[in-house]
């Protein structure tokens, strides 16, 4: 229901009493309202939905999840026979 894309905050300023900013989505920069992210700083990642930051992306958690999933992959790779055996 809700398209939300991660981007990096590259600038923060006030406009009409709102915390606004510029967010870089891999080379495309769009203005966004950061009013719901009181703690976010330049250089940090947020998820943008209809021009509003809705979360401060937990970069450590993102890293942990990926590492955990990749380890799971390595574990399976170490057991190629078993893996193949199960598929048959």
């Amino acid at each position: 229901m809700c398209l939300g894309i991660p981007g990096k905050v590259v600038e923060i300023y006030q406009a009409n009493d709102m915390k606004m900013g510029k967010v870089d989505f891999g080379g495309v920069i769009k203005e966004a309202c950061l009013e719901f992210l009181p703690d976010i700083q330049v250089g940090e990642y947020t998820i943008i939905h209809v021009g509003f930051g809705i979360s401060q992306l937990d970069e450590e958690e993102a890293q942990r999840t990926l590492e955990m999933l990749r380890e799971m992959e390595m574990l399976a790779d170490e057991l190629p026979e078993l893996d193949q055996g199960l598929q048959v």
Binding site: M1, C2, G4, E35, H49, V50, G51, F52, I54
Partner: peptide, 10 residues
């Protein structure tokens, strides 16, 4: 839904 509601409220 609730994702869009804060933006529209603002």
């Amino acid at each position: 839904f609730e994702t869009t509601a804060p933006a529209n409220a603002m």
